[in-house]
Amino acid sequence: MENAAGDFTKKLNEWGKAKTPFFFLVDYQFQKPQAWKLDEVIPDGILFSLNGFSNCNAGLRDELPEHIRFEKHPPAFEEYQPKFDCVLGHLNAGNSFLVNLSVPTPIETNLTLKQIFLHSDAPYRLLFGDQFVCFSPEIFVRIRGNRIASFPMKGTIDASVPDAEQVILSDFKEAAEHATIVDLIRNDISMVAEKVWVERYRYIDRIQTFDKTLLQVSSEIAGTLPTTFNGQYGDLLKKLLPAGSITGAPKPRTLEIIQDAEQYNRGYYTGVMGYFDGQNFESAVMIRFIEQQDNGLVFKSGGGITALSNAKSEYQEVIDKVYLPFSYVPHAVL
């Protein structure tokens, strides 16, 4: 596994220095990173559309069934509670300030992974053959010239809640959680940048699903890369991953807590996907993630836990994040 990570890092450093365009993805534990030059043949079944940068026809659409079925079967609250309690115990002991706890939710649908990819209304999408599909709203890092920026999302609410924007922005727990992530990302960016600042703090993104609209709170943290950077994208990813928004703080100890609490393999979920076009580098966190497993489809989702968190509220957030990002679907059956 170390060789895979080392080879990947070396390749991206060489391609970045030579300004060779590439596409890449990295799993959560950096054990199976993959990358392809864009002048190579990317394996059949791998389709991506990353904020307009794509290897598929934008107008391509598989016809949808007349009636769409999407059923979620989340674990019972009694199954979620021990995981939450494990995290809370570590938080109360001072081992972490924030832990992102995720769980797998079995789902049933009459859609294929390819249909979900093609019809998803999300800025960052990836179809990885018959293994998984991802439709992420969250940028990881974006590099334009010598400016690097990260856009962590932390805080979600159903837009139908009365005064939803004011409710989420004034929630003390959500504000504390968001501040912790911004501080973590600022520290992470400072490992690769000479100057770091918060460009925007706690602004609202609207996420459309086919049965509701969600509001998510984001911030923008920016920095200036040193003149010695010279396209070392492999080294940059190695320093910054895994993403702070899907782990917590402090990161090393929190990674151990996540493994202790979750007791399942995230795989490529919460990893990172992205591209370099020869000038610009852009990447996204692989959240909103459906995976084909032996027993059927699983939707992996999670949320940030702090010492102020309420178990039932966090459980509900995990369920709310299990959705298809279709802006309009007639005859949907939930």
Rank of each mutant, 00 (worst) to 15 (best):
F151H: 15
P152Q: 09
M153I: 15
K154T: 03
K154G: 02
T156G: 01
T156M: 11
T156V: 00
T156H: 05
I157D: 09
D158G: 02
D158Q: 13
A159Q: 14
A159F: 02
S160A: 14
V161Y: 12
V161E: 11
V161N: 10
P162T: 09
P162D: 12
P162I: 08
D163S: 14
D163T: 12
D163M: 15
A164L: 09
E165C: 01
E165M: 02
E165S: 06
Q166G: 07
Q166E: 13
Q166D: 12
V167M: 14
I168Y: 06
I168D: 03
L169Q: 11
D171C: 12
D171K: 07
D171E: 11
F172N: 10
F172L: 13
K173M: 09
K173H: 03
E174R: 11
E174A: 01
A176M: 09
H178S: 00
H178Y: 05
V182N: 10
D183N: 15
L184K: 10
L184H: 05
I185D: 10
N187G: 05
D188E: 10
I189G: 02
I189Y: 04
I189N: 06
I189C: 02
I189M: 02
S190R: 15
M191Y: 01
V192I: 14
A193G: 06
A193C: 08
A193S: 13
K195L: 02
V196I: 12
W197A: 11
W197Y: 13
W197F: 15
V198K: 06
E199T: 08
E199A: 08
E199C: 01
R200Q: 15
R200W: 04
Y201P: 00
Y201L: 15
R202Y: 08
Y203D: 07
I204M: 11
I204S: 00
I204W: 05
D205K: 13
R206M: 03
R206A: 04
R206V: 14
I207K: 06
T209A: 14
T209M: 12
T209I: 09
F210D: 07
T213C: 10
T213Y: 09
L214M: 13
L214N: 12
L214K: 10
L214V: 07
L215I: 06
L215E: 04
V217Q: 05
S218A: 14
S218Y: 10
S219M: 08
S219Q: 06
E220N: 03
I221Y: 10
A222F: 04
G223E: 09
T224A: 11
T224E: 14
L225A: 02
P226N: 02
P226H: 00
P226W: 02
T228W: 01
T228K: 10
T228R: 07
F229V: 03
F229L: 00
N230G: 01
N230A: 06
G231M: 05
G231W: 04
Q232D: 00
Q232I: 01
Q232W: 01
Y233T: 08
Y233D: 02
G234H: 09
G234F: 08
D235M: 03
D235R: 12
L236W: 12
L237E: 02
K238S: 09
K238C: 02
K239T: 05
K239C: 01
L240T: 05
L241S: 05
L241K: 06
L241Q: 13
